[in-house]
């Protein structure tokens, strides 16, 4: 019995130590990337390459996700509250939800899945094939060359993708509301301008930038921490996606609370 309890305590202790080690390691990684962000040379081409990869190459999937999110959301709101004459509410509810929550969060989940995984896989495979060591031997800092452009690229791309998500989602909802549910288009847009303000859009864009930063940091951190061979790369990629998505959802709550007070 005593042995069993001791084993349990030991196991909890080991988990705690591992958690603290992991947090320390992650904090060190973040501080290093911040340090190297401000150190020359500034690799603008690499940054634009990353913005192109994360932004431009994600547009199609963002388009698909957003148009159907807007359409389905409009339909669901209508079906949910049709007993109380919903024509005046659908526009503002869908658009505010898109601007403040759905656009940044769903864009974040898409980017975490697509780009977070790619970052971890690219950097992880470079690590196991000694390509990062090759950079270091040449005198090039791996964090500066590989992590910084990806983190900044994600931070810049995410608000752009989120804005596209909002516009396309709005269009999808508008089409369903006015062409399928036969809501008066003037009333639809009029009510949106009554209830919405610029602060709501800004809130969504700030969230998107923060999510982009976090997805970038998590994806690159997992890449740099890959050990072993192909199996390690797979594990790192998986961790980047899982932690990226969890972080977006958890941080969203705290950001919403925080931004509600300042905006």
């Amino acid at each position: 019995m005593v042995q069993l309890v001791l084993k349990q305590i030991n196991s909890i202790g080991e988990s705690l130590i591992s958690l603290v080690n992991g947090l320390g390691d992650f904090t060190l990684f973040v501080s290093r990337t911040i340090f190297w962000t401000f150190k020359p040379p500034y690799r603008v081409k690499l940054l634009f390459d990353q913005i192109y990869f994360m932004g431009n190459k994600s547009i199609f999937i963002i388009f698909l996700t957003s148009v159907f999110t807007g359409a389905v959301f409009a339909m669901q709101i209508y079906l949910g509250i049709k007993a109380i004459n919903p024509d005046s509410f659908i526009g503002p509810i869908v658009t505010i939800a898109l601007a403040k929550e759905l656009a940044p969060v769903l864009s974040g989940l898409v980017v975490a899945g697509r780009c977070g995984a790619a970052m971890a896989a690219q950097i992880g495979s470079m690590k196991v094939t000694e390509q990062i060591d090759a950079l270091e031997v040449m005198g090039i800092n791996g964090y500066q060359y590989l992590a910084v452009p990806r983190i900044l690229g994600a931070m810049i791309s995410m608000p752009l993708l989120s804005a596209i998500f909002l516009l396309v989602g709005y269009t999808g909802a508008w089409l369903i509301a006015t062409k399928v549910l036969m809501i008066d288009p003037t009333l639809y847009t009029q009510k949106i301008s009554d209830f919405m303000n610029l602060g709501m859009v800004v809130e969504g864009l700030i969230k998107a930038a923060v999510f982009g930063y976090l997805i970038g940091v998590i994806g690159t951190y997992q890449g740099f921490n890959v050990t072993g061979g192909a199996e390690g790369v797979g594990k790192g990629t998986n961790m980047a996606v899982v932690w990226g998505m969890i972080t977006v959802l958890v941080i969203d709550y705290f950001l919403t609370t925080f931004l509600a007070q300042i905006l």
Binding site: S125, M126, T129, E130, Q131, A134, V137, M138, G139
Partner: peptide, 17 residues
């Protein structure tokens, strides 16, 4: 900066893929 004095060939070349 000092590392530019070195050239290195890695076990599996470590070329940027």
């Amino acid at each position: 900066e000092f590392r530019r004095n070195f050239g290195m060939v890695f076990q599996y070349a470590a070329l940027f893929d």
